[in-house]
Design a protein around this nucleic acid. Structure first.
Lengths: 342, 342
DNA sequence: TTGAAAGCGCTAACAA
DNA sequence: TTGTTAGCGCTTTCAA
């Protein structure tokens, strides 16, 4: 007999209906609180049955029938970067509070892997997809046919036909470097940034340059390195080896700043008195380093909320929103203060 | 007409079959590579059709029919604790490499929330569940009826009928404290640990005490605080305020160690010359602090792999596996060395 | 090697 | 207010 392969031992809606002495429709009405009303006593009987039998609705059947899975997909490069972890956690909370589940995938910077992840999620009938791509200039959805709503996180440039939300990298960088110049009178400010991007300049680099230029300062040294701790470490070593070391280092991520600090410490360079350090991101860790990092903090919660909202806007309108960062002045720039400002 | 509610615009297997001029069964055979053979030319035609139409199998229907979703659930307290993030990332990789997707949830330390998360995943037909509970002594599955395989992470005690995998907290702590005593000759070693657990002593506390006792040392001071940075910070402040401050602090987590270091720095206490600091976890960040942290490193990748393996073992056998930690000697204990040892 | 068709568990239109 | 039932898209048995 076709379709009679696997053994049944899990409770289904039919069992509940039988136990409660009603039809399966009524069970549905009770569970979904509609679309038809159910007499209070009947509803009570159904609830009892559900409880007694330990019935749990089958999500696959439900999703198949309704065409909606109440599940969204979230793809980020890596969870072991605190910024992505914080972002993922925020998004997960929003989704769960709205009764949705989250499929999570880490691309680990691999475009093929990222694509497989997205394909897998799409085939699992997600209702929406949020992607922080592993590349800042490629469309993670290129060549993927789907009409599932999608929001991109943190793309450096607008992508045709896509909605993207992130923070104002240029503005945040500008503000940070401006602080070093205007408040602390520093003039040799180095930049630690990611490796060259094909036909694209990191907006943080632009912001750094803008601030220097506005103050009539020459461009400081640039060290290009991976966006991780070891990248920052090597970049700082390189910067320190120059004949005239910088008075300050602007690291484009907290992770890089950790490496920079480490390299400075190893050479006995005092922070901030000999070299100031500031960075972009402002993850929770940055408040606890010593000296505490002065940062351009990305508004993680707001980015998450906005991304989640955009997912709902069925309008497939193109968007490229850049939220302002917060300049959090702590001690690593040379400012005073010892309290922990999270 | 019943069941004809929503509009069809997505390509289904019927479209593919029609386009390729075969039956839907054949499409299945091609997609699943069985269970019946298909002529090479026919298969080719089907593949063409799939490509042209941009067909993607409906996972819900598939899961409903097969009784298997190729999706697992993963619940952890919070992603913004690097240890959990690393663990989650490892597990996610294992799952994805095996063609499974991962539903992720963060309980944020709330038992009710944790329970809702698990319920939601179960109703979404996950094939397996991995939970790092938000409490170390309660069974996260208590009162949840399911026969989905489940593995618990990091429970401090064996739970009846459950499989649990974690690291040897007691042993790791013992080793760490022993190092401080045997190698560095320290005698006043403070412990920073979580708040009192009902009827349960944190094994790290036991290990700390065991090491002290073995060396005939009196118990050092204990500071109980939350397992986060601010907890470690406050604990250290408290410890430093004592008439006879400790020579070393053993923090039960890297996060706490960050807070401890911060408090020491603020009071101008030199690490490790005045107070040594060691901690449990050994996340990637710990190699980059200055001085780099000496830690009992939890074998994250191994824990992840073993947990994932246990999920597969249909044997519902009870288990309580404790993997040994690695003692990573860096500089915060007083040992020499300046290279980064990740 | 291929096709017809049952049925997984659920929702909801329609009838009663 | 409740029941009957089609059908969501898929897999697979059985027949051809």
């Amino acid at each position: 007999m076709p379709g009679s392969t696997h053994v049944r031992h899990v409770v289904t809606r039919a069992d509940v209906a039988r136990y409660a002495g009603v039809s399966t429709a009524v069970v549905s009405y009770v569970i979904n609180n509609g679309p038809r009303p159910v007499a209070a006593t009947t509803a009570e009987r159904v609830k009892q049955a559900i409880d007694v039998l330990g019935y749990r609705p089958n999500g696959s059947a439900r999703a198949l029938r309704r065409g909606v899975s109440d599940t969204i997909g979230l793809v980020t490069p890596q969870l072991d970067n605190l910024f992505f972890a914080e972002l993922s956690q925020e998004i997960e909370q929003l989704a769960v509070n709205a009764g949705k589940a989250v499929l999570l995938g880490n691309s680990l910077g691999d475009l093929r892997h990222q694509r497989q992840l997205i394909d897998g999620m799409l085939s699992r009938q997600i209702d929406g997809l949020i992607v922080r791509g592993s590349s800042s200039h490629d469309d993670p959805l290129a060549g993927i046919r789907t009409n599932v709503p999608c929001v991109l996180l943190d793309t450096m440039v607008p992508l045709p036909g896509r909605r993207s939300i992130g923070s104002d990298l240029r503005g945040g960088a500008d503000q940070l470097v401006d602080h070093l110049i205007a408040v602390h009178g520093l003039t040799r400010i180095a930049l630690v940034v990611g490796r060259d991007l094909p036909g694209l300049v990191d907006p943080r680099e632009v912001g750094w340059r803008d601030a220097l230029r506005r103050h009539g300062l020459p461009e400081g040294p640039i060290a290009r390195a991976a966006f991780d701790r070891i990248g920052g470490y090597r970049a700082a070593q390189q910067l320190l080896a120059a004949p005239l070391p910088p008075q300050a280092v602007f690291a484009s991520s907290d992770l890089q700043a950790t490496g920079v600090r480490r390299a400075l410490h190893e050479t006995g360079t005092k922070v901030p008195s000999e070299v100031a350090v500031v960075s972009f991101d402002g993850t929770s860790e940055s408040a606890f380093t010593y000296p505490a990092l002065t940062v351009a903090r990305q508004p993680v919660a707001t980015i998450a909320r906005r991304a989640y909202e955009l997912l709902g806007d069925d309008g497939t309108t193109e968007a490229f929103e850049q939220l302002p960062t917060d300049l959090i002045v702590r001690q690593s720039c040379g400012c005073a203060g010892t309290t922990i400002t999270p």
